[in-house]
């Protein structure tokens, strides 16, 4: 996934690259059925807005806040989620 700009001028990047405390919106989830279903059940779908809240002491997993709760996700899994920074 390249870093590119969309028509509203926002930056496209993968979720693991979003800087701390920045906000973003999910654009596309490129995962296998099982993981995507888990994310869907947890409220992370296209269009969901989130804030990157922190990372574990060794830098991985990361913690994001969406729909009012905190979710931890491995960077390796987050890599497959395309987002736009807002």
């Amino acid at each position: 996934m390249d870093t590119a700009n969309n028509k509203s001028g926002n930056k496209y990047l993968s979720l693991d690259k979003v800087p701390m405390n920045a906000n973003g919106r999910i654009v596309n989830i490129n995962m296998d059925h099982l993981m995507r279903k888990k994310l869907t059940d947890m409220g992370l779908v296209r269009g969901t807005e989130f804030t990157v809240k922190g990372q574990a002491p060794l830098g991985d997993p990361i913690k994001i806040n969406l729909r009012g709760y905190d979710l931890a996700i491995r960077k390796n899994d987050a890599k497959q989620i395309l987002v736009e920074q807002i």
């Binding site: 296998d32 099982l34 947890m42 709760y69 905190d70 979710l71 931890a72 996700i73 899994d77």
Partner: peptide, 11 residues
């Protein structure tokens, strides 16, 4: 088999 880490951090 796949492994992933997607977990809620409850209050």
């Amino acid at each position: 088999e796949k492994s992933y880490f997607i977990m809620e951090l409850p209050p």
